[in-house]
């Protein structure tokens, strides 16, 4: 068992465990905080996959941005308007059965597939390669995403104000 393996299991455990709490805890704020840990664990997994740039983006955008938006949503709808912060659940048993079966099926598919893997030797940073791809091959996608974000921003603002 190498150090790499130990770190992987650590982050995998953090991710899966936190995700489990995210979907089971009744208090929304607690869920949100566990989501933070889950996202953090996923960022760790990205680092292990030598995708350092994605890991940083994960932290900045997800933890710094999306999660804050979610928590704001909780605050706006629950605190101010005195709706109880606890959240109920429904159809637990069929959902549990369904997701369990689906999960086993997925894992079985993954295990039985004969994956063609290539072991890359150099584990250098991928930032430079990503940057070049982003402004060359994917420049149109990049621009379109910029426009999409702008539209989403304007749309969200106008919808929330109505």
């Amino acid at each position: 068992m190498t150090v790499y393996d130990i770190i992987f299991y650590l982050f995998a455990l953090i991710t899966v465990g936190s995700a489990f709490f995210v979907v089971t805890l009744r208090n929304i704020l607690h869920s949100a905080f566990f989501l933070l840990f889950a996202l953090f664990g996923i960022a760790g997994l990205y680092v292990l996959l030598s995708a350092d740039f994605i890991a940083v983006v994960q932290l900045v955008v997800y933890v710094g941005g999306i999660l804050v938006v979610l928590i704001f949503g909780v605050m706006l709808t629950n605190k101010i308007t005195h709706v109880q912060i606890k959240s109920g659940t429904l159809q637990i048993i069929p959902a549990a059965i369904g997701t369990l079966v689906l999960g086993f099926a997925l894992i079985k598919i993954f295990l039985t597939t004969n994956w063609k893997t290539v072991q890359l030797s150099a584990e250098s940073s991928s930032v430079q390669g990503l940057g070049i791809l982003l402004v060359n091959q994917y420049s149109v996608v990049f621009e379109l995403l910029g426009i999409l974000l702008l539209i989403a921003l304007i749309g969200a603002a106008s919808m929330a104000r109505r």
Partner: peptide, 16 residues
Amino acid sequence: VQSYLMFVIFSIIILL
């Protein structure tokens, strides 16, 4: 919407 999603999940399992 959530019940519909349930049906989707079970249908996927059956298809699999």
